[in-house]
Design a protein around this nucleic acid. Structure first.
Lengths: 147, 147
DNA sequence: TGCATCTATTTGCAATTGCAACTATCCTGC
DNA sequence: GCAGGATAGTTGCAATTGCAAATAGATGCA
């Protein structure tokens, strides 16, 4: 069952990603919480100065297309978790702004998400492994950026 | 930019997965080839004894739901890449069988896919890193299986 | 045997995604 | 200051996914 070729490592990465992500999502669903995707939006906004981000910036950060962000924000807005505001600098632009309700939901989701990460991921690697893995992933990302 | 917490490593894994996967898919699309998903089906069948697999087995291997496999196979079948055959042992069951055309397409996709893996992934890790990464991913998968 | 139950797969329908076209605004060179 | 082209965001439509039935055949046991 050991890796035989480098490409096999890539296949393992795909598999591990799929398995772990599904496990995390199942945890959220079991706790009657929204999908991870919502978490990502809420978290991106919470980190941003002024709790707000332009639609395009949000898309870039979450690696989603602009039109999908439009509709993802539509859904969050309908739940009162974010709010759209016209941008001051650019009248074409819109900011997604985090609401108090959105902030509260993010915090609630994090307790479940954090536990899932702990159980399915963190717990199975020691400190050295975490560092090594993080280093490799950063190298891959950096290499990608350069191309 | 270094990892500060274990959970940050998980976030990096999500990000690296998203970035690299998208890069691979873009390569296939640029070469006018079908999506990776199709490759996965064709490859699973090519590895299977008799070039065939029950729908349910296929779903399990690809980590997809049964109903999504039904329709994925529908699409491949329309292109003549696979063919459905009623299972001998169980009249409820269906086998997806790889056709010659499906085999040929798989081979063709592989030249592009392999190059993309090489460029975006393999090339950026040395042999020790490959081994270490594969080991960690296998550990995560194994741990998951046990829960 | 004959019914209740389980399993394999498919299908209908609603939600989500991808892509192309559209609107509104901004920017640049003249 | 304005025509032409870029940019931000949204929307229509087709394709894909998720989930809850529906269908059909297997299985167990009274």
């Amino acid at each position: 069952m050991a890796a035989k070729t480098p490409s096999h490592t890539w296949a393992l990465m795909l598999q591990a990603h799929a398995v772990l992500l599904e496990a995390m999502q199942a945890r959220l669903k079991a706790a009657d919480l929204p999908p991870l995707e919502w978490y990502d939006v809420l978290w991106a906004l919470e980190q941003a100065p002024g709790l707000r981000l332009r639609m395009g910036a949000l898309a870039e950060r979450l690696l989603l297309t602009r039109f999908n962000i439009t509709r993802l924000v539509d859904r969050l807005e309908q739940e009162g978790l974010v709010q759209r505001q016209q941008s001051k600098e650019d009248r074409r632009g819109a900011d997604a702004v985090l609401t108090a309700k959105g902030r509260a939901l993010r915090a609630k989701m994090w307790t479940t998400y954090r536990a899932a990460i702990e159980d399915h991921f963190n717990r199975h690697l020691d400190a050295d492994q975490h560092a090594a893995l993080a280093g490799m992933l950063e190298a891959l990302l950096k290499a990608h950026g350069r191309e």
